[in-house]
């Protein structure tokens, strides 16, 4: 009887931990790309990790937030699965900026207000020294945790294609600089 209870408890714990498992795979995937994690903020249901990009000539940092929406309970997991929203924010850093830059960039920012990143579009946001590209993706956590080996390949492809798309959007905004500082 006690063993049965322990078994159930372990299953529940594993189901509740699927978002953490995917975050673990994300940290490994980014580390293998030469992008170490440099900032964590994690609590119940939402985890954010910021990665430095010392090997990337364009990007200064990439932040990934995983927000679990469904599947913590056995019923919701069996009915709708374990859905989560991954928000990827890639940053390009310009080391000299002035307020005129913001004025020049207002057109892009204005056009982006109406964009829904939920639909997989990339949204741009200009700050003084940074230009940020944001993309939101809805994922099924079970796809990455049921078969870890296959899930790892799928996750690597997802990260590579997302970063490539963001580089394409951000490249025009990177100003040439005689020096680079790692994020």
């Amino acid at each position: 009887m006690l063993n049965k209870l322990m078994e159930m408890s372990q299953k529940r714990e594993m189901r509740e931990s699927r978002d953490e498992m995917v975050v673990g795979e994300l940290v490994l995937a980014f580390a293998q790309l030469g992008m170490p994690a440099v900032r964590f903020a994690a609590g119940m249901g939402q985890q954010s990790v910021r990665f430095a990009t010392p090997a990337d000539p364009l990007l200064h940092s990439v932040a990934v937030t995983l927000d679990r929406k469904t599947g913590s309970g056995a019923l919701s997991d069996s009915l709708v699965g374990s859905k989560a929203v991954i928000t990827v924010v890639a940053e390009v850093k310009n080391y000299l900026a002035d307020p005129d830059d913001l004025v020049n960039m207002w057109r892009t920012d204005f056009a982006n207000i109406a964009r829904l990143p939920m639909l997989g579009q990339v949204k741009l946001d200009h700050q003084l020294n940074s230009v940020l590209a944001t993309k939101k993706l809805m994922i099924e956590l079970n796809e990455f945790t049921r078969d870890p080996a296959a899930g790892r390949v799928q996750l690597n492809q997802l990260i590579a294609s997302t970063l490539e798309e963001m580089r394409g959007h951000l490249a025009p905004y990177k100003k040439a600089s005689p020096f680079e500082i790692d994020g």
């Binding site: 953490e20 490994l28 440099v38 964590f40 609590g43």
Partner: peptide, 29 residues
Amino acid sequence: TQTDDLLIGAVIASYVNQGWALIDLTSDG
């Protein structure tokens, strides 16, 4: 302010690579 985060990230990457599954992550920086 980042060295502790860098190390915890390395611990995660290292153990996940060895086949361990991350089941709990709590961090306030």
